[in-house]
Design a protein around this nucleic acid. Structure first.
Lengths: 218, 218
DNA sequence: TAGATTGTTAATCGATTAACAATC
DNA sequence: TAGATTGTTAATCGATTAACAATC
C-alpha cells in the first residue's frame, strides 16, 4: 500500500502546504505578532494568496473578513488538522550519515516529534550517535512492538530496504518514510512515503539542462 | 525564480518518473534482458501501464506494437531527454551529516553526476570528508566560477541559506537543490528545487494520524 | 492468424487560478 | 463609510485513467 488516495476528499497537495503554514506561523508568533494575512503567508512560502485561502476553505478554516487571521488560533487549528501533538515517536533504521542527519534534525522536537532510537546491523554504529541511542537491528521489531512505535524512517541501502520494512511492519509500524531508491510493498496496511534524493537531484538537472538547451548550445 | 512552470508543454510530473524508469532499465539491462513491457516498468515503480505509455507518448518514445521496448534503446532515449551525460558537476554547501550523506550517495556516478567538492564555514569540517575535498566557504564563489559549476546543493542551516544561495548564484550556478526549510529567492535566473525533510515526515504523519482517527480512537 | 501490446484519443478527475460578492 | 480582505464559486488548467483502434 502506498499513500492513500483519499482522506475524506481532502486535496493531498494542501497537506505539505499546511505544514509550511505551520512553520511560518510559529515564526510570526515568535516575532510577537498575532495577525497575519493570506498574502503574507503566500509570500512566505512562494505561492499565491488565493491558494492559501482555498486551502483554508477546504479545511473549513475561517479568518476575519477585515483583519486577516489570528496567528495563535490559526496555528492551533492547523496543528489539530495535522495531528501535531506531543509524543509522536519515530525510529530510524540505518544509522549512516543520512540516518544521523535525520536524528539531529532541529525542529522535530517543537512539532511534537521525537526520534526515539536508531537501529543498525553494524555493531560499530551502535551505542549512541548524536542525540539518540542506537541498537542492533535484531532488536528493532521488539522495540517497535513494546513501545508501540507507529512510524519508522528507512535509511538503509536499497537491497536491504524490503527486508527492513517487513520487520518494521511486523513490529506494528503504520507509516514509513522511505529513503531507499526502491519501490517497496508492505505485507499489512502501512503507509509508505518515498523520498528519493537521487530523483530530486536529477529532476533539478533536467530543468537546468533543458533551459540551457533552449537558450544556447543545443 | 522557482521551478519553471513549463518547458515546451511537458508534463512536469513525468520527469521524476522518467528518472525512475531509467533506474529500472539499468537494473533490467544488468540482469541480461533487452526487452521490457510497459506493465513491467509500471509494476517496478508502483504505477499503471497506461501511465508509462502516456509518459512515453508525451516524449515521442515509440516501442514495438508487439514486443514491448528495447531496454538499451529506451535507456538511451530517456538519458538523452534527461540530459544524463557524463560530466555533470555538482558542489555541496554545508558538510554536516546531510552534506556528507549526499557526497557518499552511491549511484550518482553512474548517472554521470559528479560531486566535486564541499564547502563549509567550519574549519574542522574542511579537508576531506568521505569522497570529496572540502574547502572553506570563502572559496565557494571562486570555485564555482573557475570550474563553471552549474548546480549546487544547499545543506546549510535555514538562517544561512539565503546568503549561501546568493554566493552560489554570483558564482554562476543555474540550479540549486535546497534542503534548508526556508523559501529562497534568487537574484538572477536560477532554478531552485526545495526538498524539506521535515515536511516529508509531517506529511506522512498526517496520513498515519488521519487513518487512525477514522478507524479508532477519534 | 490469433493474441497481445502498443500509441492515442476521449473522459474523468483533481488542483490551481481568477473573479467577485459578502462583510468587517 | 470607504477600503480592504476574506470565503467561495466558476473557469481554467493539468494530470491520470479508461478504452480501443492499430498493428506486429
Amino acid at each position: 500500500m502506498n499513500l492513500p488516495q483519499k482522506i475524506a476528499g481532502v486535496n493531498k497537495n494542501s497537506i505539505p502546504r499546511l505544514v509550511q503554514y505551520k512553520y511560518v506561523l510559529k515564526k510570526v508568533l515568535a516575532s510577537g505578532s498575532d495577525r497575519v494575512y493570506s498574502n503574507e503567508l503566500a509570500d512566505a512560502i512562494g505561492i499565491t494568496a488565493a491558494q492559501v485561502r482555498k486551502d483554508f476553505s477546504l479545511f473549513g478554516i475561517m479568518g476575519n473578513k477585515r483583519g486577516g487571521y489570528s496567528v495563535s488560533d490559526l496555528l492551533g487549528i492547523i496543528q489539530r488538522i495535522l495531528g501535531s501533538q506531543p509524543g509522536q515517536d519515530v525510529i530510524i533504521a540505518g544509522m549512516g550519515h543520512l540516518g544521523i542527519a535525520l536524528s539531529n534534525y532541529k525542529g522535530f522536537e517543537k512539532e511534537g516529534i521525537c526520534i526515539r532510537a536508531g537501529f543498525d546491523i553494524d555493531p560499530v554504529k551502535c551505542g549512541v550517535q548524536g542525540n539518540i541511542p542506537v541498537y542492533p537491528f535484531s532488536e528493532c521489531e521488539g522495540y517497535i512492538s513494546n513501545r508501540n512505535i507507529k512510524v519508522g524512517i528507512l535509511a538503509v541501502p536499497a537491497d536491504a530496504a524490503q527486508l527492513v520494512l517487513d520487520v518494521m511492519v511486523r513490529g506494528g509500524v503504520e507509516g514509513v518514510l522511505n529513503f531507499a531508491p526502491v519501490h517497496l510493498m508492505a505485507q499489512r496496511s502501512c503507509v509508505i512515503h518515498d523520498v528519493n534524493l537521487g530523483v530530486e537531484l536529477e529532476f533539478l538537472l533536467y530543468f537546468v539542462n533543458a533551459l540551457n538547451n533552449r537558450g544556447g548550445k543545443a
